[in-house]
Write a protein that binds this DNA or RNA. Structure first.
Length: 209
DNA sequence: CGAAGAACCACTGTTACATCA
DNA sequence: ATTGATGTAACAGTGGTTCTT
């Protein structure tokens, strides 16, 4: 690592510590990388050469994965410190650009790929959590509206009962009280005059839902 | 200028492993 | 010591965007 690299890393580290690097947009971050003699670095970054270079560097640093007998990568948990710092970075910005990824990976002794995967998984977890919160919220709304709807239907029944029970109507006052709310299906129904109470399937109803 | 292909990135779903009760 | 549940690191597949030819 040359002096320019050290300068770049220390600048980025400072940004990470101060939370500056995650407040800027992607292109602005690129201009940060682009400072001074970093034009060549940016060009190589654009062409993907930088990643190859970093991959080689990654092999030199300690990582949280080991190989088992079959050569498969074994998953090891991130340390508390690594998780905390990743969380802090995520709080500032839930996506990272290449430079930030590189700086974080270097700082945490991880591969860039690990940092990238961590952010992907973290975003997925956040989204899942938010979906759950939204579901709970919508369910509460639904329950509240259902309750309100039921209340309004009951009011309607009462008003109809009053209307049919009022003087100068052609119907008898007792008929208004015939409207019922089925406790199981929550339908408002009016049994036919000759209908058996048990034969609820044929009653005239008002849908509540 | 538009089309095709490459490279990159983010997202989603899945798998495999670590940890805990 | 064993087992099932849970959390999560890692991966594969896919689609969108950007750049190059």
């Amino acid at each position: 690592m040359n002096d320019d690299d050290n300068h770049k890393t220390s600048t980025l580290d400072l940004n990470l510590q101060l939370g500056l690097g995650f407040h800027v947009e992607k292109n602005v971050s690129k201009s940060l990388v682009n400072s001074k003699n970093d034009l060549a670095f940016e060009l190589s970054l654009k062409r993907g050469y930088a990643d190859e270079q970093v991959e080689e560097e990654d092999e030199e640093i300690a990582i949280n994965t080991t190989n088992d007998r079959n050569g498969c990568t074994k998953k090891l948990r991130l340390t508390k410190e690594q998780s905390t710092m990743l969380e802090d970075a995520f709080k500032l910005h839930n996506t990272i650009n290449t430079a930030q990824k590189r700086a974080l990976a270097e700082k945490l002794n991880l591969k860039q790929r690990q940092v990238e995967v961590w952010f992907q998984n973290r975003r997925a977890r956040t989204k899942l959590k938010q979906t759950e919160v939204n579901c709970i919220f919508l369910k509460k709304c639904h329950d509240k509206l259902s309750e309100e709807n039921l209340k309004l239907k009951r009011e309607l029944v009462e008003l109809r009962a009053l209307k049919v029970g009022a003087p100068n109507t052609s119907q008898s006052s007792s008929k208004g009280a015939d409207w019922n709310i089925c406790s199981s299906c929550k339908k408002i129904w009016k049994p036919n005059e000759e209908e058996d109470v048990v034969r609820k399937s044929s009653h005239s109803t008002i849908e509540l839902d």
